[in-house]
Every structure is written in structure tokens, then in C-alpha cells.
Amino acid sequence: MLALTSTSIAWLLFVIILGGWVVYALLNLRQAHDELGSEVEMAANRRPYYDDEELEGPRLTRVLGVGVVLLVIIVIGLPLYWILEPSRLAGATDAKEEQFIEWGSNLFAPTADGGFNCAGCHGGMNGGGGAAPYNLTDPATGEVTAVSWAAPAVNTIFYRFSEDEVRFILVYGRPFSPMSPWGLDGGGPMNDQQIDTLISYMRSIQIPREDCGEGEDDPLSCPSGHLPTSIQDDIDALALASVEDGTYGSYGEALYNLDLSSGAYSCARCHTPGWSWGDPGVTGQGGFGWNLRGGKAASAFPNQSDMVDFIANGSVLGQKYGIQGQGSGRMPGFGSLLTEAQLEAIVEYVRSL
């Protein structure tokens, strides 16, 4: 609205100034007629003009008055335009982002709707998690098996990854998974503009965060916010119910193994082989993530609180963690998704393997 107002003011000033010049030109053309009986154009210095009394009286007053009016317009109009300029820029930025979101939604859409079918694997247009067809090849026998791979939710992807990390995954894909490269640099079909618009759309479908910090006005991306309490309560209820029915032996084991859709996703997805396609092997033996069994977790993190912090913040490329560990950037942070009690329960279970 403010952007439209500033544009209207700018057009009004333009029309007033242009109109003034037009009136000035017409008046001069009207006064510049030929002298009666003249056969040639009269020289300007022979044309009768105002006498000194008129020039230094009413004429001078009118000219000065017009000058004052134009000066007032400039003095008021320019500062007013500058005051409204930030709002105009913000409006232009918002309009651009809305356009990006629309374009990104077209890319995210199913193939039948002309998109690249991100929705087909990740649970529809809201990105709540789904399944992707995938062919597994046995490295020993070469046998190929068709499986349905549990695709993670992307409506919390910015809870776990930064925008740069999301862009890297989109461009280069996830090796050893159905997530193929989508960017031109990774061998995919999307250019940089399309990747940007896809990221804008995924940002728009993020589950709004709770308890954002001061000055963090966007609940879709505020750094200090966390998953809504209602969803964390649902995660607790799901985990506790699976312990009560004997599926898992402890609260921490349940949190480690359950597919926590609409929020976090299972630790077992990366750290238990076969979990993603419904045929889990030995718990914590390693897959996309490293092997957690045999006391390796406790050896890497002698202090349990350090391990809790690592899971909360994730792995930062090149940054040291634990005992002689160096981050690869592949381990996401779960501090915005899970409560401290949930993280501690998972760590206690993992350290018991």
C-alpha cells in the first residue's frame, strides 16, 4: 500500500511539473505573435514588452510566486518520496518473493500438473513426507530389488538445514538414495533461477515456529524458534504408546526408530541400514550416517552433554566435534525440532548400543 502511495505521489509531481511547462510554453507562444503590418519576423529586441513598473511590480511578484510554489513542491515532495522509498522497496521485495513462490510451486507440483514431481515423493504440495520408488542393487550378487523408500518431510527442512545446505542437496542430490541431482551443476534439469524459486516455495510451506526471539518476525524461519508444542506433544504420545505396546523397550529407543512425520524424522533413517525401505538391519549399525554400536558414540563423546549439543546443532563442515571428529556437514541439527528431554533420551539410548 505504501509503495503504491509513493508511486502515486511521484506521478502527481511529474504531472504538475509537466503541466507547468506546458502552460508556460502556451503562454509564450500566445504572446509571440507578429506585429500588425509586419512583412518579416520582428527581432526579439524590437518587440514591445512590459515597462519597468510592470516588470518590477506585478510581473515580478507572479514569477516569484510560481517559483515559491515549485520550491515548496520540491522541498516537501522529495523528502516524502525518500521517506516512503524503503516501503516501496520492501513491497517490491515481497512481490518478487510471492512470484518466486508461485513459480516454485509449479516446479514442486506432480508431473500430471506440469511440475517436476517433488510432491509425488515428499507427500503432496504441503511436503509432509511420503514415499519414493527406488531400485536397490545388491553389491555382492548384482540383484536388483524394487522398494518404496520413505521420503522425509520437507515442511521442516529449514529446521534442520540452512538455505545453502538445502540448495546443495537440491543441486547435487543425496547419493545412495532416490534423491537425484536437480541442478545443472549436478547433472539435473533445473537452472539456478528454478532452484531459487523451489527454495522459496519450500520456505513458504514450513510449519510455523513457536517462541521466536525479539526481532524475529517471520515464524517460518526465525532461528531461535522451535517446533510447535502441540506437535512435540504428539511425538511424545506416539513414542510412549509404542513403549506401552511393547514395540520398543524405552522412550529413547522409540524416538530413535519412529518415523516422526510432521516434524522430526527418524534417527534410524540414516543410522540403521535398510530402515528407509522398511527392511531394517541391525539397529545403529550405520547407513548414510556412521555406525553407533560398540560404544562408538560414547568414545566419540566422553561427555554426554557434548553429544546432546552435537545432535541439537548438527555437523558443520570442517568444524571439530567430540574427540578428533571433523564435521562433514551431512548431519542436520535437531535442536529446533526436538525438546531437550527428547534429545537426552535419544542420546542415552544410542550410548547404550
Rank of each mutant, 00 (worst) to 15 (best):
E54F: 14
Y321I: 07
I195A: 13
F168C: 03
G322A: 08
Y24T: 07
R30P: 03
Q206F: 13
Q193D: 14
V171W: 06
E53H: 14
D309Y: 08
A109T: 10
S105Q: 15
S261P: 01
A298Y: 00
I83M: 12
Q324N: 15
H122P: 06
L170D: 11
I76G: 02
P181T: 05
D218H: 06
D309L: 11
G114F: 05
D309V: 10
V350E: 12
L317N: 03
R203Q: 13
I199L: 04
E98C: 04
R351P: 04
D192Q: 14
E165T: 01
A43V: 11
C267H: 02
A268C: 12
V166K: 06
V68R: 14
L78V: 14
A241M: 05
G91P: 07
A150L: 12
L317C: 01
L317R: 02
F168N: 14
R209D: 01
S38F: 07
P58F: 10
G104P: 00
V147F: 06
A140V: 10
S262A: 13
L240K: 11
G173F: 12
V147H: 05
F158E: 00
D138Q: 11
C267L: 05
G124C: 00
L78R: 08
Q304E: 15
L292G: 00
A345W: 05
F14Q: 09
L13C: 03
D309Q: 13
E35G: 04
V166L: 09
T141F: 02
D196G: 12
W11C: 05
F158I: 04
L338Y: 09
I157Q: 05
Y248S: 00
V282P: 03
N135L: 07
W277Q: 09
N45H: 14
G325R: 15
G252K: 03
V40H: 14
K296Q: 14
E214H: 03
I323N: 08
G263E: 13
I323D: 11
R174E: 11
G187P: 01
W277N: 06
T137P: 00
S250P: 02
S148Y: 02
Y134K: 05
A112T: 12
S230Y: 10
P139V: 10
L240V: 06
R160N: 05
D279M: 13
A237R: 08
C118V: 03
L60F: 10
N291V: 14
A298P: 00
I195Q: 07
E102K: 14
G322I: 13
I169M: 07
R160K: 13
A131P: 02
P133V: 03
W277S: 09
R59W: 08
I76Q: 01
P58M: 04
I73M: 12
V243M: 05
A132H: 07
L337Q: 14
R269I: 05
M125W: 10
Y265Q: 11
C118Q: 04
G91Q: 08
T229K: 12
H226L: 09
